[in-house]
Design a binder for these strands. Structure first.
Lengths: 257, 257
DNA sequence: CCCCTTCTGCGTATGGCATACGCGTTATTG
DNA sequence: CAATAACGCGTATGCCATACGCAGAAGGGG
């Protein structure tokens, strides 16, 4: 009951194959009136201006001037559309200047992480679409390729390289998601980011019991919550810490290798 | 048009206040036939056995033997139910043995991260529910409290402490999400985890072009994808790297302080 | 003691959603 | 010129969250 198909479980959905440029145009039948590109572009536009929740098959169809069901000739399910949207929004990475300049892995990775973050921040809705498994689209792969290249001179094993890449890209993603949450709260109420943060601090103060939560209480008293307001701070801090950890790994690898 | 309400934007939804034990029972009217606890427990049970997607208001209502709309007397929207489900599933943290034993911050943080991961892995569906903003529920706060306590002796500033806690809990979360993705793929097809990974490697091999993706190509050739199969590996590796970074931060703080 | 207020459970209705299915139509190939 | 295959899309199904309002329960004030 297990091994049946020739290719097996590893096959791609057809629209993803189309994103890779595989898949010959069928030669029979009427010429398609739409195209995957048009559909995905329309979906991205809706998501960018009204959020991912506004992206429905019907809505996208209206945008391209077609009927809902006609989209299913191009995409077999909405999840496929999501994948293609992500792919289109993220785009290919710019070449790493640090690599060209012959700089070290740390500069290269920093640039790589910053680039990825930039793409996320420019397309916050991307962070809201549910991920399923590892990437298999051209641009996603290109980003991974670039990350691996940044670690080329590090002396790490191949396994350690992906692990590091995974670690960093997860960090970038979750930090950007935090920003996105803040942005969402800001637009939900009509207030400024500062007010949102201040409101949350007020709520915490009301709930935190000095006896049961001494550390949080100390934290609130320290006034850190009201301070910095550099939107890049958490990113810069986290990345630096992460890279310090990677540096330790690289050093120890070099020492024992 | 800005400052109107006394409490302002920081207010909690009523069902969350109920989770804190605030909110007096109304004295008029019929006695409630249900309770938040029963509803949340039923929702958690459904999520645990059939996934978060199976949790609908109607389904939960059926589970507790009530009508769909009656749930809205206890919860004002489904998102509130989500928050309460998360709170219930995660539960309060066990006391840190490392802290009691007087061990250092590194042992304490490691234990803390492992505990958090354990809760996630035992309730994979939690990872699928969309997060909105920072936690304001009792158990979530308790976890944060414990994380901060683990860093007590580190000499870090309060601000650096939250940043570190944030960094680590985001890491734990995203790593667990990866496991969850794998588990989902495993149950979706009927195959073993090894076969899923192997299938993905096969797909990659088909798509990766040695010229455009030299680093990934090298990676695939190195055979790392087929190797380890220790499900904790990525977690152990990432956490160690992260903590090495934190160690560097603590050292440099001590040096300049 | 009774009525009025307040809260309960819940039936009904609305408007949204993804998508299965099948039909008429259009191009291409033999 | 027919057979074939892909097209656009109308219709229908079965979910979903949730607004609204009503009928009945419980307690408090007169």
């Amino acid at each position: 009951m297990a091994e049946k198909d020739s290719a097996g479980a590893g096959d791609l959905p057809p629209s993803i194959e189309a994103a890779w440029g595989l898949r010959e145009r069928p030669v029979k039948g009427p010429k398609p009136g739409l195209s995957l590109e048009r559909i995905v572009a329309a979906a991205v536009a809706v998501a960018a201006s009204e959020g991912i929740a506004a992206v429905s098959m019907g809505r996208v169809a209206k945008e391209v001037g077609a009927s809902t069901m006609s989209l299913y000739r191009y995409v077999s399910a909405k999840d496929e559309l999501y994948v293609l949207m992500q792919e289109a929004a993220i785009g290919p990475p710019d070449p790493l200047a640090a690599l060209a300049a012959g700089a070290g892995w740390r500069e290269a990775l920093t640039e790589w992480a910053a680039g990825q973050r930039e793409q996320f921040l420019a397309n916050l809705w991307v962070l809201r679409i549910p991920i399923g498994g590892p990437p298999a689209t051209p641009n996603s792969l290109a980003w991974w390729e670039q990350g691996l290249q940044a670690l080329e001179g590090s002396g790490l094993s191949e396994g350690d390289k992906i692990s590091v890449i995974l670690l960093i890209s997860n960090f970038v993603r979750s930090e950007a998601l935090l920003m996105s949450d803040l942005a969402a709260a800001v637009t939900a109420r009509g207030v400024s980011p500062e007010e949102v943060v201040a409101g949350h601090e007020r709520t915490l103060r009301r709930l935190v019991d000095p006896v049961r939560h001494p550390a949080i209480h100390r934290l609130l008293d320290s006034g850190v919550m009201s301070e910095p307001d550099d939107p890049d701070y958490e990113f810069t801090f986290g990345l630096a810490t992460l890279l310090d950890g990677v540096e330790a790994l690289i050093r120890s690898t070099a020492a024992e290798g």
